[in-house]
Simulated assay, not measured.
Amino acid sequence: MKRSGPLLTLLAGLLLGLFMLSLNATTGEKKTSASVTESPSPKASSPPTTPSPSPPPSPSKSPVPNADYAGRTDDDSSAVAVSLRDGRAIAYFCDGRDKESWLKGDVEDDGSMKLTGKGGAELNGTLKQGKRISGTVDIGGGHYTFTADKAIKPSGLYRATATVRSAKFDGGWIVLKDGTQVGILNKNGKPSPAPEIDPETGAVTIDGRQLTARPVTP
């Protein structure tokens, strides 16, 4: 009976050792499983953005060309001449007897123009393809439509001013493409039909004195 004591003690020690080994193994598995973490999945890369193309530059507007224009009203009663220079315009309306007006103003980029003169006279016109000016003239209660084609020298607009024997003269002439001249000569403010000028030189004789009518520009 005395020998069974040490055997029980040995058996108890073996059981305790097996229990400790089993406990350590279980703890190690938990630590290993806890230490394993899922690595985050890589984010899908965004496709490269293509920059939107910049709008093409707007075409630059061509300036209104410098030129002269001359023609008649639609009722053939009067003549109209217009001279354009650097975005400015001067025009002359004349019936060759006693009705006339000098008008001035700006020319827009689209070729439109509104010119004004004394007594409320007004010319509204539009340059078309650089070849002609079409529009209207309102003067002295009358309303006139006109077309003035591009002038080739000596066709165009002329003017002469002078003082002869204490009299003040102011003459305006429109030379049309067929050579016809329409003009008025004012003597001390009184209008009358103007004598013809030499279209090549502009020479004109007024009250016995030779003067020179020169091309008119703004």
Rank of each mutant, 00 (worst) to 15 (best):
D207A: 15
G142T: 09
A12E: 09
S45Q: 13
D198A: 05
S4N: 12
S45W: 02
G156N: 08
R85T: 07
F93E: 06
R159I: 00
K99D: 08
D198C: 04
P51T: 04
N188K: 08
L10E: 09
G189N: 06
S58D: 11
D106Q: 14
D110N: 15
S112Q: 10
V204G: 01
T37L: 15
L115C: 05
K150G: 00
S46A: 13
K150D: 00
L115E: 06
P51I: 04
A12I: 13
L14D: 00
S134D: 14
K31L: 15
D74K: 08
V80P: 03
M20K: 01
Q181A: 04
L103S: 08
F146D: 03
T9C: 13
V82E: 00
D178H: 04
D170C: 05
I197A: 07
A160R: 01
G189P: 05
K61I: 13
P191F: 06
G171Q: 07
Y69E: 01
D76S: 09
I206H: 10
K118D: 14
K104W: 05
T145L: 05
G156A: 11
F19I: 08
G120F: 04
D149R: 07
V107P: 01
T37N: 12
L7K: 10
K190T: 14
G105L: 03
G5D: 13
M20V: 14
N124V: 12
T212H: 09
N186S: 12
L115D: 07
R88S: 13
K153C: 03
E122T: 12
T217R: 13
Q210N: 12
N124W: 00
T145H: 06
F93D: 02
K43W: 06
P56G: 09
V182T: 13
P195Q: 07
K153E: 12
F146L: 06
T26L: 11
A34M: 11
G17S: 12
G183P: 00
E196S: 14
Y69H: 06
T73A: 06
K153P: 03
V175I: 14
A44I: 11
P56H: 10
S62C: 02
R97A: 14
M20N: 07
T27N: 10
K99H: 08
S46N: 03
T32H: 11
